[in-house]
């Protein structure tokens, strides 16, 4: 009985396993192999040991990429999380035209990312951008701000644009999670006279534990691998103020056709992400098994 049941479970997993073997494993191993080879486009490539790693570690923009990737990831995830949770809570209330607002507030995620970032680039523009025009007209500022072009504001501006586009994912995930929490729990809390804040802390948050874990896991990895916002908004500039590792990978691998170097940069970031995956999944598994 027990083995039969296990077999049934494995059968359900089989398609995913097939996908894993077919479309994930080979590209992944290929990329790792690239990091240890002198492969350029069109040549087979030879094993060169750690040469690529030594090269990219000595590359001036690499250390900036490490710091910026971490700063970008942590701040963007934090903002998206807070914003997404707040939006989900609001949309979970009995408000007028709830269906409309539920769809409307998710719209940033509908627009093709590429268009969204071009629009933000334009909004931020010091000469032709809506934000500067509006702030100047209201009288908040006296001269235009070059949001994306100053070291002090560039990273923040990129994070805001990225968060604007991606917070709906958090909102929709949390909102769906809130639907699976039984209303009875809230009703009895109401009877006990628990405040809304207490209800949020003791019912909503625990009820969303697994969703929050999964969302943070998936989006932290995705945010760390975000490329379009940087590429389209700043190109990593001004100077190296927003240079993240995916931008470095793009320049080395695609623009310079030096695949080995690009792969080495990616590989250097792997331990960080693998560690993240292991820690979060262990925590989730532990909680699930408890």
């Amino acid at each position: 009985m027990r083995t039969r049941e296990s077999l049934g479970g494995m059968a359900l997993l089989a398609p995913t396993l097939l996908l894993l073997l077919g479309l994930v494993l080979y590209p992944f191993c290929y990329a790792i192999w690239l990091a240890f080879s002198d492969k350029t486009v069109g040549s087979p490539g030879q094993y060169v040991g750690l040469r690529n790693f030594i090269y990219v570690l000595s590359w001036p923009q690499f250390s900036a990429a490490v710091t910026n990737t971490i700063v970008f990831t942590v701040s963007a995830v934090a903002i998206k999380f807070v914003l997404g949770m707040a939006v989900a809570l609001v949309l979970n209330q009995r408000i007028r035209a709830r269906n409309f607002f539920r769809a409307f507030l998710l719209l940033p995620w509908v627009m093709p990312a590429f268009v969204v970032y071009l629009v933000w680039r334009w909004l931020y523009d010091p000469l032709a951008g809506l934000i500067n025009y509006a702030l100047l007209d209201i009288g908040v500022i006296a001269s235009p701000i070059a949001f994306l072009s100053d070291r002090s504001t560039a990273m923040g501006s990129v994070v805001v644009a990225h968060a604007w586009r991606n917070f709906p994912f958090y909102a929709i995930s949390f909102l769906a999670g809130m639907q699976t929490i039984s209303q009875e729990l809230y009703d009895s809390a109401q009877v006990d006279g628990a405040s809304r804040i207490r209800q949020f802390r003791h019912i909503t948050l625990p009820g969303l534990y697994h969703i929050i874990g999964v969302v943070l896991l998936l989006t932290t990895i995705q945010t760390a691998n975000a490329f379009e916002p940087i590429y389209l908004l700043t190109g990593g500039g001004p100077s190296d103020a927003t240079m993240v590792y995916t931008m470095l990978v793009y320049v080395m691998g695609i623009m310079n056709l030096r695949l080995g170097e690009a792969a080495a940069v990616s590989t250097l970031f792997l331990p960080l992400l693998v560690g993240l995956v292991l820690v979060v999944t262990m925590l989730l598994q532990k909680k699930a098994n408890a």
């Binding site: 479309l23 994930v24 494993l25 590209p27 992944f28 990329a31 690239l34 998936l218 990895i221 995705q222 691998n225 490329f227 590792y245 995916t246 990978v249 793009y250 691998g253 695609i254 690009a262 792969a263 990616s266 792997l270 992400l273 693998v274 995956v277």
Partner: peptide
């Protein structure tokens, strides 16, 4: 693991 490397790779 699909997510651990940028699509550019």
């Amino acid at each position: 693991f699909k997510y651990l490397l940028p699509t550019a790779m």
